[in-house]
Design a protein around this nucleic acid. Sequence first.
DNA 1: TTATAATGTGACCAAAGTGGTCGAAACATA
DNA 2: TATGTTTCGACCACTTTGGTCACATTATAA
Lengths: 205, 205
Amino acid sequence: MKVLDQLDGNKRMAIINAALQEFTEKGFDKASTNHIVKTAGIGKGTLFYYFHNKQDLFDSLIEYCIGVIQDDFLAHIDFTEPDFIERMRQVALLKLEVQHEQPYMFYFFAQMLIHEEPLPEGAKAQIDTMQERNYAALYNNVDLTMFRDDLDHDKAMELIRWSIEGYQQQLLERIKGESIASLDFATLTTEFETYLNTLKTAFYQ
Amino acid sequence: MKVLDQLDGNKRMAIINAALQEFTEKGFDKASTNHIVKTAGIGKGTLFYYFHNKQDLFDSLIEYCIGVIQDDFLAHIDFTEPDFIERMRQVALLKLEVQHEQPYMFYFFAQMLIHEEPLPEGAKAQIDTMQERNYAALYNNVDLTMFRDDLDHDKAMELIRWSIEGYQQQLLERIKGESIASLDFATLTTEFETYLNTLKTAFYQ
DNA sequence: TTATAATGTGACCAAAGTGGTCGAAACATA
DNA sequence: TATGTTTCGACCACTTTGGTCACATTATAA
């Protein structure tokens, strides 16, 4: 049983989010356990009661993130959808959902891989298979006949992916700070829809 | 005369790049003057001989960046090019050029605006006009008749911009670490070309 | 050459921050 | 009441912080 599972709901998420944020923004070395406990609203002792030390906390976070991405993200992707843009819509919405509750999840992961922080035992293998699954989720078994045949399929798919990621990032910056409740989800979904339709018109035949 | 101008070539760029990197990665508060002097290869005293204090160094960097972006980036954009994608090509190549010599320039600026660091006197106004000029450089006087008329021009332009920015970022990550000399500029340009042509086929009539 | 000014240095400082400990308090269960 | 589980923050030894300053080194000028 992972240590993070012992902690009940609120406090658990508080620690996770505080630690994710701190590690993401500062990296392992510069991350301050003092800041983490302050942000999480717990005493210093509590952190080191549940986690052996800073490294242990970091390793637990990695494990936790792998779990979330596997179970809440990759596991929910419908690999049978042959329409590339529809699949991207699915992936984007799923990502947005995860990102809404765990804002630092994906960013944390990206940072760790970029800065090549030393990973805990066995995590490397898990991450590798995750990345393969992610690639498969995006590109495998796509119906290429839907694309205009005067276009290079692969380049088209890359361009579409970059477009959607760009839209996503712009969206995240726009809604940053706003509370979950105040978000007009329906309107946002419609807006996203119009962009996807534009893409379909441009790239499909 | 700005302080940075007093310093001759090599040492000047060393300080600029070291400081840009440190401020970009850590933000103003966490940025360490000790690290900066070590990276720049100068003595601690030298830094504080040219700059009154940490804040002064930061302010000078902002001024310097504004200058570079104005003179080496915005000033070279051909505002008369009516073809949107051609204009984006121009902007992208220009950006790549600046980014090659000043890798932290744009990223530094973005970080400062996001984290809302306090800006020196008058810089806010300059930055505002810069952003307006940047927007104009991208969107003003574009020949909209080139787009397919079953597409929303504005959405199409956004999608194209996101695509190109995505390609750019992927390119930067790919060539990160490689030396300037080892880069095969011609091949890269051709590759970029094919992506732009795909975009033209998809979005133009 | 010598005298003066400009440029460059790193040991040093008080203050703040670091990861981690520990005895005591609060709480739960019985 | 007694026993075990959580929670806490003052405290520790140690590092790093922005900034200073007495002293080199170099450039300029007489």
